[in-house]
């Protein structure tokens, strides 16, 4: 159940929607960056391992 606000309800929802978008966006970007970096490191390590065995 959503709470009911007085005449300024639109402003309140707008702020919280903006907060959700910005913070959600930050979380997504950070998580994606970490995942990509980890995958890249694993790939590079595998390549180094291959090079050493040759």
């Amino acid at each position: 159940m959503l709470p009911e606000f007085d005449k300024n309800a639109a402003f309140i929802w707008a702020s919280y929607a903006l907060g959700a978008i910005m913070i959600g966006g930050a979380i997504l970007t950070v998580m994606m960056k970490a995942r990509l970096a980890k995958a890249e490191l694993a790939r590079t390590q595998a390549r180094a391992e291959e090079a050493r065995q040759k």
Binding site: K33, A34, A37, K38, E40, Q45
Partner: peptide, 18 residues
């Protein structure tokens, strides 16, 4: 979030070193 971003950076630097 700062810690996760730092981990990503450390991994990136390691990969670059290798």
């Amino acid at each position: 979030l700062v810690m996760t971003l730092m981990r990503a950076e450390i991994w990136q630097r390691r990969a670059a070193q290798i």
